[in-house]
Amino acid sequence: MTQETPAPTSELPRRERELLALLRQWAKDNKRSAHTRTQIPLEAVLKAFQTIRNRNPEGHFEPTVLSDVLEVLEQHGLIKGFQERTPDQVSLPVKIWLLPEKRPVRAEEPMPRWQHELNWLAREWQRATPKQRATYTALNLWRKSDPDLFAVPIRERALEIFGTFGSETDFPMPEKTFDELKSGPLFSDPDRLDEIIRTFRPPPPLLTETFPLKEADGRYRRVGTGDVLLVVENATTWWSLVECLPEQHRLGYVAWGLGSTFRASVRAITAEHRVSEIRYFGDLDLSGVRIPLKASHTASQLGLPAVRPTEVLYEALLGLGRPRIAKEAPADAAEAAKLASWLPAQHRADTMNLLVQGRRLAQEWVGYRYLTRNTDWYTDIR
């Protein structure tokens, strides 16, 4: 027997439309798939119906009103009542089936005109997944934009490509795109991918409980004899900063903050490290500002220097970055003002706007190419 195609909900009267929405919400709250039929007991149906405003303006016998509403929904192919019914004056089904929502039909995406180095992707288009197609499309737009092909770390390039040419829906964390894509003819071949997008893969810093007093395998290391500790939230930016340090600077160490771990690891700083200043550079989002603020509070309790922002690096981030939707919910104005107060005065308004809008700037926007070609940021370390 062929099931009748459900009518669009926009064709339903208001009361029926609202009850249907409440039933679907009940199914969602009870972790039922929207694409399989869901059994809902009459008690839940009654409870949902009773929350509808102006559900019975004529003052009719309410079970009769509900019976009529359920009949309309069944006629539209949206629910089906059980044959077993209540023994009441107006008999109602003891349960209903909430029928599956129609799956949205994904429009077939036209194949783009390829940049000449990407022509071979035409052979892969038909078998590509939606995620792969979105990625191929963004890569193609990037290559056709005549980009600067100066080789950079892969996360910085991912942010440049998908933070500029990819949608926020497809690429919510654009800098991590290649961390997650591992299948297909392009993404399963790291060497080929690096050649096409002109990238390399710097090793992450080694993890250690204390700040080393001498070079540790060339990564997580002491970088000079200075008295300044620079903490960087993410590993790629840590590498880029270390590689681009000028010959003369006040840094003693550059440390990978490892996200929120810095709140605790600041306790590892001792007198022997001879640190008189602690500077920080991270993402501009709720957690990215909370981390140094809380670490600074811990440092003060331990008699250590306060954690201060790297003023010019944050200025560069605000100038170069393209905001994206953050994972965290937007902050209210009071919380945003409190967090932004950690930053220099000239950066607080822009930061507050980001936080209350629930958006973020990934620090990888201030990447290897920028750090290699500019010297303004040196003032943060001298």
Rank of each mutant, 00 (worst) to 15 (best):
S10A: 13
E11Q: 14
L12S: 07
P13W: 10
R17N: 11
W26M: 07
A27N: 09
A27Q: 09
K28F: 09
K28E: 15
N30M: 03
T36H: 14
R37H: 14
T38S: 13
A44C: 06
A44G: 04
L46M: 14
A48D: 11
P57L: 08
G59E: 03
V65I: 13
E71V: 01
V72Q: 14
E74F: 03
E74N: 06
G77T: 14
I79E: 02
K80E: 15
T86D: 03
D88G: 11
V90W: 02
P93S: 07
K95G: 05
W114T: 07
Q115H: 15
Q115G: 05
Q115I: 04
E117A: 13
W125Y: 06
Q126S: 12
R133N: 01
Y136V: 00
E156M: 01
R157H: 00
G163P: 06
G163D: 09
E168L: 05
D170A: 15
F171D: 07
R198M: 07
R201Q: 08
P202G: 08
T208H: 12
T210R: 12
T210F: 05
P212Q: 11
L213F: 15
R219D: 03
V223N: 07
T225H: 08
D227P: 06
E233D: 04
T236M: 02
W238S: 06
S240H: 02
L241N: 09
E243N: 15
E243T: 15
R250Y: 01
L251V: 04
A255W: 06
W256D: 07
G259P: 05
R263I: 15
T270L: 08
S276I: 13
Y280C: 02
Y280M: 04
F281E: 10
D283W: 10
D283V: 01
D283M: 01
L286R: 15
R290T: 08
R290Q: 15
R290S: 07
H297W: 09
P305V: 03
A306D: 15
P309E: 02
Y314G: 02
L318M: 07
K327A: 07
A329R: 15
A331H: 05
A333T: 09
A333S: 11
S341V: 03
L343C: 05
L343T: 01
A345R: 14
Q346K: 14
R348H: 08
A349F: 01
T351L: 07
T351A: 15
V356H: 04
R360E: 09
Q363P: 09
R373I: 00
R373K: 10
